[in-house]
Amino acid sequence: MKQLGSLLLAEIIKEHRHSFHSKMIYFSLLVWPVINFVTAYYSFAPFRMGADSPLARFISYEQLPLFLLTGYLGYIFYWCLVQSSWQMSFERQAGTMEMIFISPVNRFAFLYGRSLSSLIEGVWLFFCFALLALFFVDGIQLSGWWAPPLAFLILLVSAIVWGGFLCVLFLFSRDASFLYTVLDEPMLIFSGVRLPPMAFPVWAKVISFCFPLTYALQLIRELLMEGASLQAMLPSMGLLAAVLLVLVTATVVLLRQAEKHMKKTGNMVMY
């Protein structure tokens, strides 16, 4: 356990040194999300708003900015990880990947350490956004003082698990940006970042519930916008936990398979 801890720390420090200096972080985690968020907000402009708008069936008109804000917040958490996993494919090209597999590092420490570290880079943004939400946006309805930290924890854990899963996929695929397109952009539509999934037709709902972000966002909105009690949130929490468990299992199986494959063929590329 102690060894695992130090491995995690080493990976976090390496990641930090490696990527935090680059301006990319500021663009991809602050400038673009802010522009996208504003664009998303204005995308609702052509529709009829106000108290009697059909939108009110799902979200009250006043809470729309908050709805989008929480949506994008969750999305940025996940996006952080997509980006970091994407860098994994560069690491593979640079040959450092083999070094990691030669060393006796626990591969899971490596995977989740990577995820956690890239999240830490993104954490300061959480506070920027949270502050923004508190000062400028109406309609906040907290479940209690513990709601923001709990929301943070939910995002953190679910995003790390998602990130670990992506890392494995990116690690062993030839064309990483393809996976990125397939896995990342649908999150924006289907996970309820911009639209409430409850409004979707059944087939779209099915896709929605494949992404852990859907569950995480639902919980976060219950915590921050609806002031739901812990008891009321138990079912959604259970769902999220189940989905995360499935993802972790998939990650473990894939990684084992991939390493076996690599040892046999000398090729990291699986797909």
């Binding site: 995308s43 609702f44 402009a45 052509p46 529709f47 009829r48 708003m49 708008s53 059909p54 939108l55 799902f58 539509i189 911009r194 639209l195 409430p196 409004a199 979707f200 037709p201 779209a204």
Partner: peptide
């Protein structure tokens, strides 16, 4: 898809004047 979902399912086809 966004346009389709928003128009049909969320706003039930009601547009701003």
């Amino acid at each position: 898809l966004f346009a389709f979902f928003a128009y049909h399912y969320v706003f039930a086809g009601q547009l701003d004047e």
